[in-house]
């Protein structure tokens, strides 16, 4: 029973990781690529770590798994925020599907 649950979690998690990489390939500009990379990537990795905790079920390993999830969930948005801000301020091309931009003219060097 545990083996089936672990296997299903493994496949779902790595599928989300694959979708994240596919999004980085396919989406039009770097801000939308960030959407795919941050969320789908950390969700996929988190599911894999949960699969690990389900498989072993020991207290020490579960606490280590919780700490990995905490590290991922704390660092991913910080890195995403920094990359997005740098990318926006350095004037990289934004996809022409973007139909409203309230930040334009509001953000300036240096931060």
């Amino acid at each position: 029973m545990i083996e089936y649950l672990t296997g299903i979690l493994l496949i779902i998690g790595s599928f989300f990781c694959l979708v994240a990489a596919l999004g980085v390939i396919r989406l039009p500009d770097s801000l939308t690529r960030m959407h795919a990379a941050t969320k789908a990537g950390s969700l996929g990795a988190g599911l894999l770590v949960i699969a690990h905790a389900v498989f072993y079920q020991e207290l020490g390993i579960s606490l280590r798994a919780v700490s990995i999830i905490a590290i991922l969930l704390f660092t991913a948005p910080v890195a995403a925020h920094l990359i997005a801000r740098t990318s926006y301020r350095s004037g990289e091309a934004i996809s022409d599907r973007t139909w409203i931009d309230e930040l334009k003219g509001n953000g300036g060097w240096p931060g």
Binding site: G13, S14, C17, A20, A21, V24, S30, R33, M34, A37, G41, S42, G44, A45, L48, I68, L72, A76, A79, I83, T86, S87, S90, E92, A93
Partner: peptide, 18 residues
Amino acid sequence: GAADRVIALDLLSVLVVA
């Protein structure tokens, strides 16, 4: 752009952890 490369590297490190 440089930002796209940094995104790729960041996601790559998450995938290594996975």
